[in-house]
């Protein structure tokens, strides 16, 4: 109802799933998003990278209609679904009811809905858990239910906020495969927020990097799928992206699976070349590398 008025349904530009123009978001006088411009095409898989605290979740919440207090222009499709880092299943609703949460009100036949829910659960391999309580699921299973809950809405836009961040490396590999399969079948537009550069390169058609409240890097990934972490082009893009994120990759390529990016405080900071001339004379390198 009223919560959704800020996000207007997408009008004409066909083949486009997200339009964001000059988006700004300020928290307590601090500009978290300064000027974000982003257009996502209808079946594009976009990965959004950025250091912790740069406003990735903030942007995603704006696109998902969860945060009305932004400035600028945002257009998204009406059918969209969010998967959060934690599964956010409602503990007192059984798995199937969680999948169907909020769908009943559109006057659809209950039996039809139920079948659709079971089908979605089947797609993530959890049909036999339909009547279980969410608290009895493992972390990976819960996240798959969250994925089913998003899918059953046949979203034109899927917003994924580090959906695999809390999962172990093995489960994550399986989830990547599952997500790719599901996207190939349903082809929604996807915006995947992640810390994991490898994950972004493996899955995305296009990668954008958020730095200081604006998009600083935006490129399509032209590596043929299935992608391999060992390929030269993979590694090249990887270190390019790490560079964009301000991480100096001096060590040789770490083994698979790659580690997450470090928190901003412990990352090695580099000063962009053009700003050297504005530094004070007594500037001491040590301060910045502290």
């Amino acid at each position: 109802m009223t919560m959704r008025t800020q996000v207007t349904p997408l009008e004409s530009p066909t083949g486009v799933a997200v339009v964001a123009r000059n988006v700004q978001r300020t928290f307590n006088g601090r500009d978290v998003l300064r000027d974000v411009n982003l257009t996502v095409e209808a079946d594009q898989f976009v990965a959004l990278l950025g250091r912790s605290g740069t406003g990735k979740s903030t942007l995603l919440r704006i696109l998902g209609g969860l945060d009305p207090e932004y400035e600028g222009q945002v257009l998204v499709p009406e059918r969209r679904a969010v998967v959060f880092q934690e599964a956010r299943l409602v503990p007192w609703l059984r798995v199937l009811s969680n999948v169907l949460l909020g769908l009943g009100s559109r006057g659809e036949n209950r039996a039809t809905l139920r079948d659709r829910g079971l089908e979605a659960l089947d797609e993530v391999g959890l049909a036999q858990h339909a009547q279980d309580w969410p608290l009895t699921l493992s972390g990976g299973e819960a996240q798959r239910v969250a994925l089913a809950r998003a899918l059953v809405r046949e979203p034109q836009l899927m917003l994924l906020d580090e959906p695999f961040g809390a999962l172990d490396a093995l489960t994550r590999i399986k989830m990547h495969a599952l997500l790719q399969r599901l996207c190939a079948r349903h082809h929604p537009a996807v915006l995947l927020v992640t810390h994991d550069v490898d994950e972004a390169i493996l899955l995305a058609d296009r990668i954008v990097v958020l730095v200081d409240g604006a998009i600083a890097f935006d490129a399509e990934v032209d590596i043929a799928k299935p992608r391999n972490r060992g390929d030269a082009s993979f590694l090249a893009l990887r270190s390019r992206l790490l560079g964009e994120l301000g991480v100096n990759e001096s060590a040789p390529t770490p083994p698979v699976p790659s580690p997450h990016l470090v928190r901003p405080g412990s990352a090695v900071l580099t000063v962009p070349a053009q700003s050297f001339d504005s530094l004070p004379n007594d500037f001491d390198n040590k301060e910045i590398f502290q």
């Binding site: 969010v82 409602v90 007192w92 769908l103 009100s105 809405r153």
Partner: peptide, 27 residues
């Protein structure tokens, strides 16, 4: 509040939120 937010994104209206999330949560 994360559950309330999830309910919102998945299309529960105000009354749906109260009935499905808030009241059972307070039970």
């Amino acid at each position: 509040t994360k559950l309330v937010e999830a309910g919102e994104t998945f299309g529960l209206d105000r009354w749906g939120l109260v009935r499905k999330i808030i009241l059972p949560g307070a039970l």
